[in-house]
Simulated assay, not measured.
Amino acid sequence: MSVWEFFVWFFWFYIVISCISIFIRVIIDVFRDPELSGWAKALWLLFLVFLPFLGAFIYVIVRGRDMGRRGMTASREAEERIDDDIRSAATSTSAVSDIETAKRLLDSGAVTPAEYDALKAKALRGTA
């Protein structure tokens, strides 16, 4: 195999991978779109199966702008969910750490044994 044959093979391999990527993105977008009815989704999928290149080009031309908006919305929602999970994990305290804190306060004399028992009960109630 010569160097030029390798470059030609590599070029066609790149084209095939790019086409598969485009088809997958279009199919995902067809299913992600809440505005399309079930029949419209089925027709787009049939169009993509039987005339893949033409179907993908027409879909991107006709619905490309909305396709980008849906992608940005989905990534924004995913980022917000991750941020909310991180915030909730960072701010949540466990009953064990609350009881440890109350025990340290009791040992230092900052709270009375009755207040310690109340703090301990409150921490245990929070986990149930």
Rank of each mutant, 00 (worst) to 15 (best):
W9Q: 15
I58L: 11
L45E: 08
I15E: 09
T112C: 07
W39V: 09
F31C: 08
V62A: 05
F7A: 11
W9V: 15
Y14T: 12
R125K: 09
L48V: 06
W12L: 07
I15R: 12
A78L: 01
G126Y: 00
S75M: 10
Y59F: 15
R76K: 03
V30R: 05
D98F: 04
E115K: 14
R81I: 01
S108R: 13
I61V: 13
Y14R: 15
K41Q: 04
L45H: 02
L124M: 14
V26S: 14
L36N: 00
M1P: 08
R104M: 11
A56K: 00
D98T: 08
T73Q: 09
V62S: 05
T112H: 04
G68P: 12
V49D: 02
S88N: 09
V62C: 05
T73R: 10
V26E: 12
S75E: 12
K103P: 07
T91C: 08
L106N: 07
W39H: 10
D85H: 01
P34V: 02
L105A: 09
T93W: 07
R104W: 00
D84S: 02
L119C: 03
P34D: 07
S37A: 10
I15N: 07
F7S: 07
Y59N: 10
E80V: 00
F23Y: 12
G38W: 11
I99M: 09
V62Y: 06
P52Y: 00
I24M: 01
M67F: 10
R70I: 08
L54Y: 06
L46Y: 10
S37M: 07
A78Q: 02
R87T: 09
A114M: 15
W39F: 02
A56E: 03
P113R: 07
S2P: 14
I17C: 10
D29L: 03
E5H: 05
T73F: 03
F31I: 04
R25W: 06
A114H: 13
E80L: 03
S2A: 10
K122H: 10
R69F: 04
R81E: 06
V3G: 15
R70S: 12
A110K: 06
E79A: 00
P52V: 02
T91G: 04
R65Q: 05
R25V: 10
Y59T: 10
S37F: 08
S97R: 13
L105M: 07
